[in-house]
Design a protein around this nucleic acid. Structure first.
Lengths: 195, 195
DNA sequence: CCATTCGCATAACGGGTGTTTTGTGAACGT
DNA sequence: ACGTTCACAAAACACCCGTTATGCGAATGG
C-alpha cells in the first residue's frame, strides 16, 4: 500500500530536477546515473527506484523540454506579427532558465542525429514549430503587415534566424545580452515587413 | 628506420578518415577507439599506433573541420554582397560531404558546452566568422548594396540565419533540398538589401 | 643472412558504466 | 503488536571504455 501518491510523484520530480541540473552543466555526454545521484546526495539505488532505466530517464528529460515550452505562461498571444514576436522572444535564452533549457536542447542534437528515429522526432518537432510560425505569417500577410510571398519559406527563414541566434548566444553570452537579442529580433522582423 | 614517410602519413589519413566516418554517423557520443578500429576492419592496436590517445584523435578531427572550411576551392571571392553569398553558400550543407561536416560540427556542441574552455574556443571561432561577415557587410554598405545600419548587428543576424538553416537541414534534409536552401539564402539577402 | 626495427594483432588492466540483488530501518494496515 | 510494504543504501555484476603490455611476422639495412 503506497504511503501517499503525492510523495512519490514529488520525489520523482526531484530526481527529474537533478537530471535537469546535470544536463545543463555536463550535457548529455556527462549524464550518468551516478552523476544524477550525486547531484541530489543520494545513491544510484534511489535513481533506479524512480526511473527503471537510463533510457526512461532520458526520455522523461526530453519530454520535459517539450512540456516546458508548451506550458509557458503565455499572457496574451495574439496572432500576426505581435504573436510571432512573442513566440520567438519566448524561445530565446533571455534568462538563465531559458539558457539552461536551450543548452540542453542543443546538447541533445548530437545523440539525436546519431539515432535516425530520434532525428526524425526532432525533425517533426521543428516542422511543427514552422507550422505555427507560418500561421502567424499568414495572418500578418492578411493584415498587410508583411508583403505577400511563400509563407513556408518565410517560416523556415524565421526559424533559421531564431535557432541560429540561440546557438550564438549559448557560446558567447557576453556578446548577446537580452536587450541585444531582442534588438536583433526586432530588426529582423522589421526587415520582413519591409520585404 | 622508417620505411617510407609517405606510407605512415597516408595510413594516418586513413585512420583520420575512419574517425570522420564514425563521427558523421554515430556522433561524438559513439566515437570510441574500437568503433574507429572496426570502421577500418582493424583493432585498437592500429589506432593507438597512429594516435597516442583519444584526445589527440579528437583534436585532430576538429582541426580537420577547420582546415577543410578554410582550404576550400574558393574560385572567386569578391567582397561585398557577392562574396557574402559565396561564403554562406559554401557553409550550407548542399552536398553529402557538406552535410557530414556540419553534422559533426553540430554534434561537437554538446561536449563543447560542457567544458568552458572548449565553449570559449567555439565562441571565438564564431566571433571570427561574424567579423568576416561584417567586412562583407561594410563593403556592401559602402557600395550602396545595403542600407546603413549597425554592421555588427547585421553580421550577427546573418550568421544566425545561416546557423539555424544548417540545423534545420540536418534534421529534415528532404524538406530542404539544395535549391531551396539557396532560394532561402537569396531571399534573406534580398531582404537585407531592401532594408 | 641476420639483427633490428616497424606495423599491427592480441590480450590484459584498471576504472567507469547501467543494471540487478540484497539488506534494512521506518511507516503502514490490521 | 506484528507482519507487510515501502524507500533507499550498499554492494555486486557484467560490460565497455581508454590505455598499456606483449608477441610476432614482415620488411629493412648492414
Amino acid at each position: 500500500m503506497p504511503r501517499h501518491k503525492g510523495d512519490h510523484d514529488a520525489r520523482r520530480r526531484d530526481v527529474s530536477a537533478a537530471v535537469w541540473r546535470v544536463l545543463s552543466t555536463q550535457g548529455f555526454g556527462g549524464l550518468t546515473m551516478r552523476a544524477v545521484a550525486a547531484e541530489m546526495g543520494a545513491t544510484t539505488g534511489l535513481v533506479t527506484h524512480y526511473f527503471g532505466s537510463k533510457q526512461e530517464l532520458v526520455e522523461h528529460a526530453l519530454a520535459l523540454l517539450d512540456e516546458r515550452r508548451q506550458s509557458r505562461p503565455r499572457p496574451e498571444a495574439p496572432d500576426g506579427m505581435a504573436g510571432l514576436r512573442a513566440a520567438l522572444a519566448d524561445i530565446l535564452p533571455l534568462t538563465p532558465e531559458g539558457a539552461a533549457g536551450n543548452r540542453i536542447w542543443v546538447g541533445s542534437w548530437d545523440a539525436a542525429l546519431g539515432v535516425p528515429e530520434l532525428a526524425a522526432g526532432h525533425g517533426v518537432r521543428y516542422a511543427g514549430a514552422r507550422e505555427r510560425i507560418r500561421h502567424h505569417v499568414q495572418v500578418a500577410q492578411r493584415q498587410g503587415e508583411i508583403p505577400e510571398s511563400d509563407p513556408d519559406d518565410l517560416a523556415a527563414s524565421i526559424q533559421s534566424f531564431a535557432l541560429g541566434l540561440i546557438v550564438q548566444v549559448l557560446f558567447d553570452a557576453d556578446a548577446f545580452p537580452p536587450e541585444r537579442q531582442l534588438r536583433l529580433l526586432d530588426a529582423f522582423l522589421a526587415s520582413l515587413e519591409a520585404g
